[in-house]
Amino acid sequence: MTSIPASHPTAVGVHDELMELTIRLVDEFPDFPAGSVMRCVARAARRALSAGVPGHQVSTQTERTARLALTTRLTGVPEQRTPAPQSVRRAG
């Protein structure tokens, strides 16, 4: 059996980070029902994973995307976008 390096995120570790992120965003965006914030985080995480974001960057990218979506919904004006990390940009 191969051991996983300590620096390699596990699915459980990423899940825990996303749960903490969700709780933080629910507190930071009280104008939205908790379920809406949870769905926003879930969509942002799915988007990060389908874009091939490495496991150790999933929660960071998810937070950027979810914050942008929630801020846009709240104010109608998006925050300034942060470009995706170089490693996940697709050649085109």
Results as ranks from 00 to 15, higher is better:
1 M>Q: 11
4 I>H: 07
5 P>R: 09
5 P>S: 11
5 P>M: 02
6 A>Y: 11
9 P>L: 03
10 T>G: 06
11 A>T: 09
11 A>R: 15
14 V>Y: 03
14 V>I: 15
14 V>T: 13
15 H>N: 09
17 E>H: 11
17 E>W: 08
27 D>G: 01
28 E>I: 01
30 P>C: 01
31 D>M: 08
34 A>I: 00
34 A>C: 04
36 S>F: 14
36 S>D: 13
39 R>H: 15
41 V>G: 00
41 V>D: 06
44 A>L: 08
45 A>R: 13
46 R>S: 05
47 R>H: 09
48 A>W: 10
48 A>K: 04
49 L>S: 09
49 L>I: 15
51 A>T: 10
51 A>L: 12
52 G>F: 14
52 G>V: 09
53 V>Y: 12
54 P>L: 05
54 P>M: 01
55 G>Y: 13
58 V>S: 05
60 T>D: 04
61 Q>D: 01
61 Q>C: 11
64 R>K: 02
65 T>A: 12
66 A>P: 07
66 A>N: 04
67 R>K: 14
68 L>T: 08
70 L>S: 02
71 T>G: 00
73 R>T: 05
74 L>F: 04
74 L>T: 02
78 P>D: 03
78 P>M: 02
81 R>H: 07
83 P>C: 00
84 A>L: 15
88 V>F: 11
88 V>N: 06
91 A>G: 04
